[in-house]
């Protein structure tokens, strides 16, 4: 039974991290209907920035709490900056192009960013500094759930609540929902659509950066290629929940996290990634609209 609970909690933790990345996919898709293939790379850059900042600070002997805060803020700032710039360079000029053009451009951006980090830094796996200490009060349940899992769950929950509030009650959130529903109409009622799209990319990238920091300190190592796999998995989660739907992305991530956790725990750990990809292929074939998404009808 302990093993089951351990797998269950592990799956929830995984799902929570996927959710942070999947939200970026789903928000961008909801607003401009684009699969932002470079989103995984934004997450990777977030992880790398926090790695660099945290290591530099720890070499210069900063206290742990300051390291965590500064690394987190730096990751959010730079990831958002990258997300914003990528949108301006690779997607904005293609707003009215055929559907496949921005996707190809996004793939190009993804390959470019991967190799940019590879050339500027290194291709080796780098050890990520331990940012989350083992808490003493966690001792009795430490064999089931680690301290970092708890931190991840709490952080994710807080971020989700903040995001919900932002989208439901602020002006930006309202404008985002309006733009997602009907871009032309949003323009007519005086919403600066380009600015809203930029805001979406920035928020999505910031979430991915936090995900990057959390997962990197959880796993303990990073390299330039982590964005690809994480991106695909988060995308799977977003599609599973119904792409474009924000609660759907969270639900899909949890389902994916649990599936992976149980599959690796009970079946085989060699095929961990195969499960995720098979799930993706199966959903897209049988229920492309996902768990909470609406089926898209096309008018001629």
């Amino acid at each position: 039974m302990d093993y089951f609970i351990e797998l269950f909690l592990g799956g929830i933790t995984r799902g929570a991290i996927y959710a942070l990345i999947a939200l970026g996919y789903t928000m961008v898709y909801g607003i401009i209907g684009l699969i932002n293939f470079a989103h995984g790379e934004i997450y990777m850059i977030g992880a790398f920035t926090s790695f660099i900042v945290a290591t530099v600070l720890s070499i210069y002997g900063f206290p742990l709490l300051a390291i965590v805060l500064i690394a987190g803020v730096a990751a959010v700032i730079w990831s958002s900056a990258y997300g914003y710039t990528v949108e301006k360079i690779a997607y904005k000029p293609l707003r009215h192009a055929p559907r496949l053009s921005p996707l190809i451009s996004a793939i190009g951006m993804s390959v470019f960013l991967q190799n940019y980090v590879l050339l500027a830094q290194t291709s080796d796996f780098l050890p990520f500094p331990e940012l989350i200490p083992e808490f003493a009060f966690m001792e009795p349940v430490a064999h089931i759930i680690g301290s970092s899992d708890i931190i991840i769950l709490i952080t994710t929950a807080v971020i989700m609540i903040i995001l919900t509030v932002v989208i439901k009650f602020t002006r930006v959130g309202k404008a985002m929902r309006a733009t997602a529903q009907d871009r032309t109409m949003a323009m007519l009622v005086g919403i600066n659509v380009n600015r809203i799209i930029s805001a979406t990319f920035i928020i999505g990238s910031a979430l991915a950066a936090i995900g990057g920091l959390l997962i990197a300190s959880h796993v303990g190592q990073i390299n330039f290629y982590i964005g690809f796999l994480a991106g695909i998995k988060a995308f799977t989660a977003a599609v599973l929940g119904g792409i474009g739907s924000i609660p759907g992305a969270v639900l899909g991530s949890l389902v994916l996290g649990l599936t992976e956790s149980f599959a690796t725990g009970y079946v085989s750990s060699d095929y961990e990634d195969v499960f995720a990809f098979s799930l993706l292929v199966l959903i897209l074939i049988f229920k492309p609209s996902g768990l909470l998404g609406k089926a898209e009808t096309k008018k001629v």
Binding site: L94, A97, S105, G108, M109, S110, V111, F112, N115
Partner: peptide, 20 residues
């Protein structure tokens, strides 16, 4: 050749933007 993949990525983006 070191910058090969970097260039490939840039080519995909640039072609889509400037000469689809």
């Amino acid at each position: 050749s070191e910058y090969r993949m970097l260039a490939f990525g840039a080519i995909l983006v640039a072609m889509m933007v400037f000469r689809p």
